[in-house]
Write a protein that binds this DNA or RNA. Structure first.
Lengths: 247, 247
DNA sequence: TCCGCAGACCTGTAATGACAGGCTAGCGAG
DNA sequence: CTCGCTAGCCTGTCATTACAGGTCTGCGGA
């Protein structure tokens, strides 16, 4: 199978492994590399791109971490785009749409928008230096008037200049990011835990501090792997259950 | 600061980087390495353990990936105060494997296997008539010895004849279904909620009845749309958080 | 034709060396 | 005492080499 691959840029502006990773991801996204299609071996890739196996492995590791390919034990060994994918249908914007579709009234109220310096958690999630400027947004989403989801979002200010002053009332944050800043989410990780709210959060959500809630931490990134949004959401699971579809 | 570190086992039974990773993780879990405490530099670790920087970097990479430490540009990798967080990949068979890969010991104990008649919930989820025979399996999964996940599975007996007598100890149920019955999961739906366990479940999971847990309901089906498995799992989210990747 | 085994292929692991560029501490000048 | 600069430390990146052990393919014998 002969495939055309872009030549890698060696001016040091971007790591070789990242360029290679992007090149492979493009093939996967475009469908040129379909499900169960094995990638060339590490040695072959190393030859094709004239880079060391170190670089190849770095690129493949990243793709595995992004769950775009998976490893097959042994021969021919690597990968193919994942067929069984996690689809998170209950994503924040998706679920609101779903609820609207089923005749619920969904409103989003912005409680606070501030500019600040990234704390340790934000820095780690967004992969930015500690103290870099971030825009923080705290929003409450209601379904049929009932508090449903309390979200604390942080975004690197560098990527969204002026967002701390934008009017977000009842708007989808993702729409704003797309229209105003051209930011298109490519993927995300989420972690879910069961927690109790602190006094303040409990008051906002109108529950007691001994009501178990879902805590959802999320990081979303762009095509080029830049982390652009991190949030922690508290979800009243007595109102609705969190839905995850796996396809 | 002088710290005692275990000597690494070089018989090749376990990769050096994994031993090193575990050694560092132990320090972090025990609190010996606290928040904002910088780790030794790569070169220092390399000296201390008499391994190459390759090994050190492999171990650190894994710790970063597990989000137990985060990197600060420049000097030393810092330990984060974040609570221990394992990744539960929500994919069908991946979860236990992923944990094992990140160096945890995963065991599965079968508490009960019975044959019975589908109740209302099971019938609805599996789309079978009320009263049809189902195999019920109750299993407890532990990570590093700690109770982690309590799963009650129900499968239509028609699809898995004899499963109620199969030995499942420490086996992946999905492997058994695949090898023994040729059942290949195609997709699944999951719903997640935050709940308190009842007395019995709390005892099995070794928590109090006022510990908030994740309740996960799931239905999986085959290519031809046949529902073949329904389960309800209780997940100790103080141990790990539920991981969902969105691609 | 079928089966078994040897050798080729491939990945995982590990050591080593090298260099660029960022960050910091400490020194020296003002 | 303060400010600025430099040397050294540290990480990120990349190349090369080596070897063990698992997997697969194809050849040759039955």
């Amino acid at each position: 199978m002969t495939m055309t691959y872009p030549r890698l840029n060696r001016d040091g502006a971007e790591p070789l492994w990242m360029q290679l990773m992007r090149a492979l991801r493009t093939k996967i996204d475009s469908g040129e590399l379909g499900p169960d299609q094995p990638l060339p071996s590490e040695a072959e890739l190393s030859d094709m791109f004239s880079v060391s196996r170190t670089v190849v492995r770095e690129a493949l590791r990243e793709l595995v971490q992004q769950r775009l390919i998976y490893k097959v034990k042994g021969r021919g060994a690597f990968v193919s785009p994942r067929k069984t994918e996690l689809r998170f249908i209950g994503s924040m914007s998706g679920s609101a749409d779903d609820l609207r579709e089923s005749g619920r009234r969904v409103t989003t109220h912005t409680i606070r928008q501030t500019l600040g310096e990234a704390d340790e958690r934000e820095a780690a999630l967004l992969q930015i230096p500690l103290g870099e400027q971030v825009v923080r947004i705290r929003r409450l989403r209601r379904v049929d008037g009932q508090p449903w989801l309390l979200v604390d979002t942080a975004l690197p200010a560098r990527l969204v200049p002026g967002l701390e002053r934008a009017v977000l009332e009842n708007q989808s944050l993702y729409d704003v990011l797309r229209r105003r800043y051209g930011l298109e989410p490519a993927a995300a990780d989420r972690w879910i835990e069961a927690v109790f709210p602190d006094r303040e959060d409990a008051a906002v959500l109108e529950v007691s501090t001994s009501t178990p809630l879902l805590g959802i931490e999320s990081v979303a990134w762009l095509d080029d792997n830049t982390r652009f949004e991190a949030y922690y959401a508290l979800h009243r699971s007595d109102q609705t259950r969190f839905y995850v579809g796996i396809r």
